[in-house]
């Protein structure tokens, strides 16, 4: 418990002083503002480029469309930012030997791993929520015609949050396996970006955490009945990944 609280404070300090929270916040919130604006401006830009074209086919010019665009960027770009920012979470500590002194001082290794996970899980979850709220109110401002119920957006935001919690556990695990953080990053990103391909196989798509991204995109009350099970399943994956990470960190040779 002592190690856990000590590392909660340490990770919080590191997140602030090394600007990790800030970078993640930028990587998530920037598109909350940019996407609705782009969608609003797109017809005007295209009109000048290709007069007479039917633009309604190209995109969904509603608040719903703006929020869905945002989620697309969350998947494509925010994932990249989060992984690149956090890929060194353990590998840098292993490589830089900063764990040697704590390890020789009877630190509880489970506490280290859990503290790291919880600090960034909390940060990401809060930032995602803020991102969705900003996106919601800004797109409401730009597309006041058809307004979505905020409850749905909050629900999508939570589903997306759970999905990011899974990705965080994936990066943490990869980071414990490689001394080079870039290797951990590339492997995590490959898994994240290849998972939509798995989603195309009907039978197993529901068992992939990427299924949550699909469901969050629905933005209505027509969620698949499997959604709750999928969320539960994702939490099970997270527990397993954290478990393997803890096992690995207990076995590791630090020199």
């Amino acid at each position: 418990m002592n190690s856990f609280t000590a590392y909660i404070k340490k990770e919080y300090m590191e997140g602030i002083r090394n600007f990790k929270f800030l970078i993640i916040a930028l990587g998530i919130i920037l598109f909350a503002l940019l996407d609705p604006l782009m969608l609003k401006l797109l017809p005007h830009i295209l009109e000048n480029q290709a007069p007479g074209m039917d633009l309604s086919q190209l995109a969904n010019y509603t608040q719903e469309g703006a929020i869905q665009n945002y989620m697309q960027n969350l998947f494509q770009i925010s994932n990249l930012v989060i992984v690149l920012t956090l890929m060194g979470l353990l590998s840098e500590e292993i490589k830089n030997k900063t764990l040697i002194i704590p390890y020789s001082n009877k630190v509880n290794i489970n506490g280290i791993v859990l503290a790291k996970y919880i600090v960034y899980a909390g940060a990401i979850f809060i930032i995602i929520l803020i991102g969705f709220l900003i996106n919601y109110y800004y797109s409401k401002l730009l597309f006041p015609e058809e307004i979505i119920n905020i409850g749905r957006v909050l629900k999508s935001s939570s589903i997306f949050g759970v999905y990011f919690l899974f990705n965080l556990s994936l990066v943490l695990l990869m980071s414990s396996l490689f001394r080079k953080s870039i290797a951990a990053g590339i492997l995590s990103l490959s898994i994240i970006y290849l998972s939509p391909a798995i989603g195309m196989i009907e039978k197993i798509s529901k068992f992939s955490p990427y299924y949550l991204v699909n469901q969050a995109n629905i933005l209505s009350d027509n969620y698949d009945s499997f959604l709750n099970k999928s969320i539960l399943l994702t939490f099970i994956y997270i527990f397993i990944f954290i478990g393997i990470t803890i096992y690995r960190m207990n076995k590791i040779e630090l020199d």
């Binding site: 590191e14 830089n96 040697i100």
Partner: peptide, 26 residues
């Protein structure tokens, strides 16, 4: 107590903060 050959700390901490951190771990 162990002093490694090249002791490595968290560079963004002050030594007072680092000692506090170790005290908390203990």
């Amino acid at each position: 107590g162990y002093l490694p050959e090249e002791p490595k700390f968290y560079p963004y901490m002050t030594s007072n903060e680092y000692l506090t951190f170790i005290g908390e771990v203990l």
